[in-house]
């Protein structure tokens, strides 16, 4: 970032300029600037939902595109995610109070035997940003954890993550159990993780493979819309 940009005083920017600056600050992983930007917009009577979608989610969408295109790499995405998390921490309680639109509910977790959660955490954050309520089961989840969480409250989407070739077959164990219990068709099942691919997702009976967090959000939105259309047809 140049010295000139360092001198920018966020509070002096117009709303449009500030939102664009926040996109840049998210891209650069500047947590403090994002916190400041969120507070400024809220102070200008922006709704928490607008701050979330127009400043943070749109900024992360740009990060996601450049990650997909090989312009940004994991560390930069993690820094951007940390910055967004700081903004989300301010917005989350306000969103609950103001009744922001909810697109659906998701249960997500890394499968049994696997402790990797960077991708899962990014998906969680982006899904929350997009308006989904997410229950994050964390890492190393046996099938009982998934089933229990799905049965505990009304849920639309199950997300499973794995980074290892050795652990990704466990996703099939979960899906097969859902089939045995007669509950598979009640949910959209999304899977992701570095060694996965479309063929694998299809073979285990998932609805879709999501190669990154941005794709997960788009896929979730599309499949939720499809489900609603089918219900109302």
């Amino acid at each position: 970032m140049s010295d000139q940009e360092d001198d920018i005083i966020l509070a002096e920017l117009s709303d449009d300029e500030l939102v664009l600056q926040m996109h840049d600050d998210l891209y650069d992983g500047l947590k403090d600037e994002i916190t400041e930007g969120v507070n400024i917009l809220l102070g200008r009577k922006w709704t928490p939902y607008d701050v979330l979608t127009k400043a943070l989610v749109e900024g992360m969408r740009i990060v996601g595109i450049d990650f997909r295109d090989g312009i940004l790499f994991v560390p930069e995405v993690l820094l951007a995610a940390n910055a967004m998390k700081a903004g989300m921490a301010i917005l989350k309680p306000l969103l609950a109070e103001t009744g922001a639109p909810r697109l659906g509910r998701m249960v997500i977790g890394t499968v049994k035997g696997d402790i990797h959660d960077i991708g899962k955490n990014l998906v969680t954050m982006m899904m929350e940003g997009a308006g989904f309520e997410v229950t994050d089961l964390g890492i190393n989840n046996p099938v009982e954890n998934y089933i229990g969480a799905l049965e505990a409250q009304e849920t639309d989407i199950l997300g499973m993550s794995a980074l290892l070739t050795t652990t990704m077959p466990y996703m099939k164990v979960v899906i097969d159990t859902m089939v045995e219990k007669g509950m598979r068709d009640d949910y959209i099942v999304l899977v992701g993780g570095a060694p996965l691919n479309e063929e694998f997702a299809k073979a285990i009976g998932a609805d879709s493979y999501c190669r990154d967090a941005a794709v997960a959000v788009e896929t979730a939105k599309a499949l939720i819309a499809k489900k609603h259309n089918q219900m109302h047809a």
Binding site: F73, V74, P75, L78, L79, N82
Partner: peptide
């Protein structure tokens, strides 16, 4: 590649 030379604060993440 994980950026830890530039951003050691990412280590625990």
């Amino acid at each position: 590649p994980m950026g830890l030379d530039r951003h050691p604060e990412l280590r625990d993440m």
